[in-house]
């Protein structure tokens, strides 16, 4: 049964990665940049959730309180994403990718250190005991935890909504057009800058949800908590093929499962600290063998 347990934990973790990977994949597909600060937006989302739950909604029904804090996290992350894009990335639209990447690293560092100064260097804990109501008991040994159920359901719902949005709305069509060829899109009368801002807003809103999920799964958050999930989710996005939404889902789930099995195997060998390198090795192997990922398109270079 421990096999199934590990599998379900992996899928739960993978759902979170998938949601974060969506943010990476959309921004990369449309703005052609690696938003290094994405992981730290998740951290901000988690911190907002924690602060709201502890300070503002403590007297309420826990589920209503959780929903309010989730909403707060999503709103603040969305605003943050748009502000970051306006201040740091927009002036660099035509700059080299090296300059954009360094700026993104700077933004990531900035968010971490602001969080460190305002929130403190210690991780803060919170209990999500009400999630136990969602536990699904299959038999005596195997119980699917409430947080796992919530993670998977949220991820699937968001994924479907997002695909519908991209496929059937005008803004979604604009996004696809900009990712295809932003010069041509501009000539067709599409507001390219607005579309990129919208992409950042959606990506950051998803990061807010992911922050909530992070807190639900780990019950603790600190200023540096966002970095590793961020890098791993990027790995997931590359794994699935960057720019592809179903790819982000498949990549995220696979990576989550791989990570959890690696964790249980390594723990037996008393090498528990080596989980992160395993994920990085997956990244390197994917990029070596199939740089376009599982579902990505091969882009030919034009001279």
């Amino acid at each position: 049964m421990s096999f199934l347990n590990t599998l379900f934990n992996g899928i739960s973790l993978g759902s979170m990665y998938a949601l974060i990977a969506l943010g990476y994949t959309m921004v990369y597909g449309i703005a052609k940049m690696l938003n290094f600060a994405h992981g730290d937006v998740i951290m901000v989302g988690g911190i907002v959730t924690l602060e709201v739950m502890q300070n503002f909604v403590s007297g309420m029904n826990p589920i209503v309180g959780a929903l309010i804090s989730l909403l707060a996290a999503v709103i603040i992350c969305t605003l943050l994403g748009v502000v970051i894009e306006k201040i740091a990335y927009k002036p660099l639209r035509s700059a080299s990718s090296l300059a954009v990447l360094i700026t993104a690293i700077g933004v990531s560092y900035f968010l971490q250190n602001v969080a460190l100064l305002t929130f403190g260097s210690k991780k803060k804990m919170i209990s999500f005991a009400f999630l136990d109501k969602f536990d699904i008991k299959i038999n005596e040994q195997l119980t699917i935890q409430g947080s796992t159920v919530i993670n998977i359901v949220t991820m699937v719902v968001i994924m479907i909504l997002l695909m519908l949005f991209i496929k059937f709305t005008k803004a979604g069509t604009a996004m696809r057009a900009v990712s295809e060829d932003n010069g041509a899109a501009q000539l067709m009368g599409i507001n390219v800058n607005g579309t990129i801002s919208l992409t950042f807003a959606i990506g950051s809103a998803l990061a807010g949800v992911a922050g909530f999920m992070f807190l639900g799964s780990y019950a603790a958050i600190g200023a540096y908590s966002g970095t590793m999930p961020g890098i791993k989710a990027f790995t997931a996005a590359v794994f699935g093929g960057i720019g592809s939404i179903p790819g982000a889902m498949i990549g995220g789930l696979l990576l989550g499962v791989i990570e959890n099995f690696a964790k249980s195997i390594l723990a037996n060998m008393q090498l528990g600290t080596l989980v992160d390198p395993i994920v990085f090795i997956v990244l390197i192997l994917v990029l070596l063998i199939k740089p376009s990922g599982l579902l990505g398109k091969q882009v030919r270079e034009k001279v």
């Binding site: 990369y28 940049m33 690696l34 990718s97 090296l98 990447l101 890098i231 990027f234 790995t235 590359v238 090498l271 600290t273 080596l274 992160d276 390198p277 990085f280 090795i281 990244l283 390197i284 990029l287 070596l288 740089p291």
Partner: peptide
């Protein structure tokens, strides 16, 4: 075979793998 963002993220991964190996 890599350049740009992918190259950066792979060097980051390589650096992390290296210190983790020395830590065990």
């Amino acid at each position: 075979r890599l350049k740009g963002d992918y190259l950066a993220i792979v060097t980051l991964a390589a650096g992390e793998i290296i210190w983790n190996i020395f830590s065990v």
